[in-house]
C-alpha cells in the first residue's frame, strides 16, 4: 500500500526523536586522542636529538626548516627548528624517520590561528636554548682535540668551527 514506507520512516524518526543523542559537546567535553594521533604541534626531546636532519629530508612538503650548529667537539646541535604547520601534511614521515625517537606530536588539536602567519611553530623552547648555550660553552671550555686526519676542513663540506651555521634546504 502506498504510504507504508512513509509510515515506517516516520516511525524511525520518532524513535530517534526520543532516543539517545550522539552529540558530543566539544569545548566542555574533550576526547582523548589515540596513541598514534597525528596532529598538533611538533615537540622535540632536545637531549635525544642528534641533529641528523633526517626529519627535514623525509618531509614531502618541506614543512620543516632547521638550523644546525656544531660545537667545539664537532657535535651537532639544533639551533632552530621551525615547523610550518600551513605546509604540513601531517603524514608522520618525519616522526617515523627519527632514529633516536626524539620527535613526537603533542596531540593538542586546538591549533587554529587567526592569521596565516601564525601557522609557524617554533619547536625549540627557551629551555632548550639555554641547554644549547650551556653545552656550547662547556664544549668551548674544554674541547677534545680534533682527530688528526680531519684537521683541515674540506672547503665543500660544512665548516667546522668559526661559522657553524648551516641552513639545510631539505628536499630539492
Amino acid at each position: 500500500m502506498f504510504g507504508k514506507g512513509l509510515m515506517t520512516g516516520m516511525g524511525i524518526t520518532i524513535r530517534h526523536f526520543f532516543g539517545r543523542k550522539a552529540t558530543f559537546c566539544y569545548p566542555e567535553e574533550k576526547l582523548t586522542m589515540t596513541e598514534h594521533f597525528r596532529g598538533g604541534h611538533l615537540t622535540i626531546d632536545y637531549k635525544k636529538c642528534i641533529a641528523c636532519q633526517l626529519c627535514a629530508i623525509q618531509c614531502p612538503n618541506q614543512a620543516i626548516k632547521l638550523k644546525v650548529v656544531t660545537d667545539a667537539n664537532r657535535k651537532r646541535h639544533l639551533e632552530s627548528y621551525v615547523h610550518s604547520m600551513g605546509r604540513c601534511l601531517y603524514c608522520d614521515l618525519c616522526i617515523e624517520g627519527c632514529a633516536p625517537h626524539a620527535l613526537s606530536w603533542d596531540k593538542n588539536y586546538e591549533i587554529s590561528t587567526w592569521h596565516k602567519e601564525d601557522l609557524v611553530h617554533q619547536v625549540i623552547t627557551d629551555e632548550d636554548r639555554a641547554y644549547l648555550a650551556d653545552v656550547m660553552a662547556r664544549a668551548a671550555a674544554n674541547p677534545t682535540p680534533p682527530p688528526a686526519p680531519k684537521a683541515p676542513p674540506k672547503p665543500a663540506a660544512k665548516p667546522a668551527t668559526p661559522s657553524p651555521e648551516t641552513e639545510v634546504k631539505p628536499g630539492e
Binding site: 550522539a22 586522542m33 589515540t34 596513541e35 598514534h36 594521533f37 597525528r38 596532529g39 601534511l89 601531517y90 603524514c91 608522520d92 617515523e96
Partner: peptide, 30 residues
C-alpha cells in the same frame, strides 16, 4: 553517525580520521 565508527577504527590504527596515509609502499605503516 555510523561512518564515525569506521573513522574511529581508522583513528585507532593510523592516528588520522581523514587523510590516513596508512598503506605504505611495501606494506602498512604499523
Amino acid at each position: 553517525r555510523d561512518r564515525e565508527e569506521i573513522l574511529d577504527l581508522f583513528d585507532l590504527v593510523c592516528g588520522a580520521r581523514m587523510t590516513f596515509h596508512y598503506i605504505r609502499v611495501g606494506g602498512v605503516a604499523r
